[in-house]
Write a protein that binds this DNA or RNA. Structure first.
Length: 340
DNA sequence: AAAACGGGGTG
DNA sequence: CACCCAGTTTT
């Protein structure tokens, strides 16, 4: 598709990103370093790290000979330290297996730790001018929209179609500027909230012309989160409420919370060595965690008797005011708020 | 709070 | 192969 690549290349000349440090070189090691650092990290954050890193480790052999500690020290602040560890290990592989020369065979490149198919293609295109397709998150978005490719790009079938398109679209020449254009368009125009007015593909983009820009690419299908439920006991006695400290790890680790009981349980008070009467019910609430949703059924009791000598480890009677000053999970705070 | 990210690892 | 993960930023 000449139209596609030519539009991108023309657009790149005026609207793409130019003059970045790693665009001034074809040294494979420098290009490699930039591609790794740019994974999940924005250009502006990468630039100072890239320059410091190259100053200290100017070539693959120097990097391979360094200690992991020193490599990670130069990565410190960039995040995703597995990238730094993989880069370091890969440098040692390049020294051991390729005499310190970065390989130009894609099979060898993808075999290096931290380099997948797309990253390998980017490195080989930018450093050796090889005509290879990239397919990162940005490019997936551009292609899914431009060619109206439905389905979640994380599935093999959709990904295969995207790779096939990406391959078919490659220009005969100008792979470097074209590859950079795809990345830049995806990063600056064809974003999740795209600026289609500024897009050179507007007239050919299926999603744009069918007004499906917001629907493509399709998001990952979410499995319905497990729904759990618990009763939270609001135990009141002489104007005080009973709180207990949660275990240090897990949900709400180390925070102060209300004692919990199965929603069905009828004599929950007995488990706490107390007697009393249940009073007005409070409204239920839903709380969402990363991995499940929790239906919270608050149950309020006026406690009239404490088992003598009761020692609840981690339990504490607090005035409502003091309780509200403690480290409470949000739903607990909201339950207590209606009582003050 | 939830989605996205690229590579790696698991079943 | 489909799926999940760790660790982080963005929405």
């Amino acid at each position: 598709m000449k139209d596609f690549s030519q539009r991108l290349i023309e657009w790149q000349k005026h609207h793409g990103r130019h003059g970045l440090p790693w665009q001034q070189t074809r040294d494979p090691y420098s290009v490699w370093l930039s591609e790794i650092m740019l994974q999940q990290t924005q250009v502006s954050s990468v630039i100072p790290y890239y320059q410091r890193f190259l100053a200290r480790f100017p070539d693959i052999s120097t990097l391979a000979a360094a200690s992991q500690d020193e490599v990670l020290a130069h990565w410190s602040g960039l995040g995703y330290y597995a990238r730094g560890r993989n880069l370091h290990r890969a440098a040692q592989v390049v020294v051991a297996q390729h005499g310190g020369i970065f390989p130009s065979d894609p099979e060898w490149v993808v075999a290096l730790p931290g380099i997948g198919r797309s990253t390998a293609a980017a490195i080989l295109a930018f450093s050796f001018g090889q005509r290879r397709a990239i397919l990162d998150g940005n490019v997936k978005r551009v292609l899914a929209r431009c060619f109206g490719i439905a389905g979640y790009p994380g599935t093999k079938a959709v990904e295969n179609r995207l790779w096939h398109q990406a391959d078919a679209l490659l220009p005969e020449s100008g792979i470097e500027i074209y590859t950079q254009a795809l990345m830049d368009l995806g990063a600056t125009v064809c974003t999740r909230k795209p600026s289609c007015d500024d897009c050179p593909l507007g007239s050919v983009c299926v999603a744009y012309n069918e007004k499906r820009v917001a629907e493509l690419p399709e998001p990952k299908p979410r499995k319905p989160m497990p729904q759990k439920e618990t009763a939270m006991l609001v135990l009141l006695r002489q104007g005080e409420v009973y709180l207990e400290k949660r275990p240090p790890t897990g949900i709400w680790g180390g925070m102060w919370s209300l004692p919990e009981a199965p929603v069905m349980e009828t004599d929950s008070l007995a488990r706490f060595g107390m007697a009393g009467a249940e009073v007005s019910p409070l409204p239920e609430r839903q709380h969402s965690f990363t991995h499940f949703r929790l239906r919270i059924v608050p149950r309020v009791f006026e406690v009239t008797a404490l088992q003598p000598g009761l020692r609840e480890p981690g339990g504490l009677w607090l005035t409502l005011a003091d309780a509200m000053g403690a480290a409470l999970p949000k739903p607990v705070r909201e339950i207590l708020k209606v009582l003050v």
